[in-house]
């Protein structure tokens, strides 16, 4: 089984996770730029973060046989902090990089005017750079947030079928599907979706344009949720082709819209004994 986790924050995860993910079948990940739990106070710390998503993190992933790409953006939460908004001006120099396969995570957190502005600006940047957009839908007041998101996407220069609406659930999937966007579901312990609810949604709405992710990060989360959904799908009677569509071909098709997906992780020579990660304390 081959698995593509289209939304996981590996910067916050350990090499044990990479090892377990590989063993579970994960061969590719996309790491969206998001907030770090702790507020950042200047654009420079975003740039160091973006540089890590384009440098050290893909190197780490490659050592475990996993292809790593990223999405770059000013996230909705920090779009509200005037100390961080100048990041928007520097995004173009990141959006041309190999390895950047979408603009994201963008979208709404609290639905403020500052978030309106950042979302509109970044959808325009996606259109200008030939990139799709990965849009986070809010956790609070979710359906209103989804509707407002779809409206802003429709008014933007970016075609709706180049947008992934993420963190969907039973209350938002219908309208999201009708919009023509790609449909993302984050399967998380305790919050967001779980495996069985995910299977029920796949049953009702079909696997077309559906992407399932673990959204694993620094919170209580599980980087193997993608595999657990695949197993739950098989148990519920989906065939292997449907599993491959949801867990591999759909994310490849969506991020492939960038023309920048390279799924052959070229692991550097040093793999075991001299591994520079194993010698992390050096």
């Amino acid at each position: 089984m081959r698995i593509f986790d289209p939304h996981i924050h590996m910067t916050s995860r350990t090499t044990d996770d990479y090892e377990a993910m590989y063993a579970a079948g994960v061969r590719a990940v996309v790491e969206p730029a998001f907030w770090l739990g702790q507020p950042r106070t200047s654009p420079a710390s975003f740039f160091d973060y973006f540089d890590a998503l384009l440098g050290w993190e893909p190197f780490r992933a490659a050592q475990y046989g996993i292809a790593h790409h990223c999405t770059i953006a000013l996230n909705p939460k920090e779009a509200n902090d005037p100390r961080c908004t100048p990041v928007l001006d520097d995004l173009p120099r990141y959006l041309v990089k190999d390895g950047v396969v979408a603009v994201g995570e963008i979208g709404y957190d609290s639905m403020t005017p500052a978030e309106d502005h950042a979302l509109a600006v970044q959808l325009q940047l996606a259109a200008e750079h030939g990139l799709p957009a990965m849009v986070h839908t809010p956790h609070r007041d979710k359906l209103t947030g989804l509707r407002r998101t779809i409206d802003v996407v429709r008014e933007s220069a970016l075609a709706t079928d180049r947008v992934l609406l993420d963190h969907l659930n039973e209350t938002t999937v219908r309208e999201a599907k009708d919009s023509g966007a790609w449909l993302g579901f984050s399967v998380y312990p305790d919050t967001k979706m779980d495996e069985d609810r995910m299977v029920a949604i796949l049953d009702e709405y079909g696997p077309e344009k559906v992407l399932v992710n673990s959204a694993a990060d620094w919170g209580k989360s599980d980087p193997l949720k993608t595999r657990k959904v695949a197993d739950a799908m098989l148990k519920a009677g989906f065939d292997e082709d449907a599993v491959d569509l949801v867990l591999w071909r759909n994310p490849v098709a969506f991020y492939g819209l960038s023309g920048r997906l390279d799924l052959d992780p070229t692991a550097p020579e040093a793999l075991h004994e001299g591994n520079s990660i194993l010698r992390g304390g050096e």
Partner: peptide, 12 residues
């Protein structure tokens, strides 16, 4: 130190 770094990190 560069030579030693190669030995440490497995760079030939």
């Amino acid at each position: 130190h560069a030579v030693l770094k190669c030995l440490f990190t497995g760079v030939s």
